[in-house]
Every structure is written in C-alpha cells, then in structure tokens.
C-alpha cells in the first residue's frame, strides 16, 4: 500500500491505479535503453582500452589498434600568437607596416627570401635587429628594429614560418635546427645590423626540416 498521501484506504486503491501506477511508458523506457546503449558504445570507443597508461581517448580503438600519439601544435598557430604579442605594434596585424616608418612584411623580399636576400639573412635580422637605412619593396625606411635573440630557436622558427605564410606570402617554413645553426655561427655580431653589412653575409638557404618526423 502506498503511503505517500493522506487519503482513506478506499480512495488509496482507486487513486493509486488511476494516476500513479500506470504501466511504464514505452517511449520513456525506450529512451532510457537507448541512453544506456549510447553510454556503452561511447565507453567502448573512447576509453583507450581501459588502459592505465593511455590518456588520450582517441588513442586506442576497440580493435586494440596502434597507439596514436597527439600531434604537435601547428607552428603557424604558435607563430601567429608570437607575432600578435611581439611584432604587431610596428608591423601591424595586416603585415603592411606603417608607411615611412615601419616596413611591411607582406610581399617583402626580406621575408620571402627573394633576390639577394636569403633565409639566413632573415634569421640574423631577427636575432640582432637592424639600425640605419633599409630598402624594402623599393621604399626606404630608417628606423630601429629591436633584437629578438631572447626568443628560443623554436619560437623564432615558428614566427618566421608564420610571416612567410600569411598575407599572400608563400615561402617555405623555417626549421628550428636552421635557427640553431645560424645562431651558433653568429658569434661576432652583437650590435644591430646595418643593411649593407647584413647582405654581405654569404647567403645560406634553409635545407628544410629533417625527413624523419
């Protein structure tokens, strides 16, 4: 007998049957069972085989396949973030710089390593900065670019990879190992470059990322 109400026993029986204890709705039961099945499948496919050492849920599939390791982040994404934190003040978000003051990066021969500008010149420019007059896309600029040697090789490589790939630029990526190599060979220079001095350094092309990834 149901005691969740204050009525007399006769009323109890009638009322119980009529409103509180109708047979379970098949829709409701169906929905619950569907939910349970969904839960089961989700657990089966996303639990990494219930292994203690698997942390990525897409790592192991139900058939016990190979462990997939999380891919490293895209250097262009990281480079874009670094750009927006460090470079945007002068070179602007659209890479166009400020006419007469800060040179553009979009279509700049320095950035895409065109003509007598090589990959190592770009890296050296980042490491030590620049002072004095500079020609960019036929325009003359005379401002000071600070040095960025405090950034790591990975950071410089990501930044350069990013600026070489945005705003219509389409130059190959710069590899962190290349930055390391250039930084090592650059023991002599500590002041910011002057244009003639920088372009006098023999050009070196980035050979590209090593084959094994």
């Amino acid at each position: 007998m149901n005691h969740d109400h204050p009525h007399s026993p006769q009323q109890d029986e009638a009322a119980c049957e009529s409103s509180t204890n109708r047979p379970l709705s098949p829709w409701l039961v169906g929905a619950f069972i569907l939910a349970l099945f969904w839960g089961g499948f989700y657990l089966a496919f996303n639990s990494g085989g219930f292994r203690q050492d698997v942390y990525e849920s897409n790592a192991v599939n139900w058939a016990g396949g190979a462990v997939v390791v999380a891919a490293p982040p895209d250097p262009k994404v990281v480079g874009k973030r670094l750009y927006s934190q460090n470079c945007i003040v002068c070179h602007q978000a659209n890479g166009m710089g400020v006419p007469g003051q800060f040179p553009p990066l979009a279509g700049s021969e320095w950035v895409i390593s065109e003509g007598n500008h090589a990959d190592n010149h770009l890296v050296l420019l980042m490491l030590n900065g620049h002072q004095g007059p500079m020609q960019v896309k036929g325009q003359s600029y005379n401002n000071a670019m600070p040095q960025w040697k405090q950034l790591t090789d990975d950071q410089i490589a990501s930044l350069l990879t990013y600026i070489r790939s945005d705003w219509g630029n389409n130059a190959p990526a710069i590899d962190p190992a290349f930055v390391t190599q250039i930084r090592k060979g650059d023991g002599s220079q500590s002041d910011p470059w002057m244009q003639a001095q920088l372009l006098a350094v023999p050009p070196v092309k980035d050979p590209g990322a090593p084959a094994a990834k």
């Binding site: 050492d53 942390y55 390791v69 490293p72 982040p73 670094l82 790591t152 962190p176 990834k213």
Partner: peptide, 13 residues
C-alpha cells in the same frame, strides 16, 4: 612513456 614526445613543440613566451 605515457605522455607523447616533446620534440618539435615550440616553447612558450
């Protein structure tokens, strides 16, 4: 062993 490689992942500022 369970945490994936750390090579080629840029550092942070």
């Amino acid at each position: 062993p369970e945490a994936g490689p750390v090579k080629n992942i840029p550092a942070a500022v």
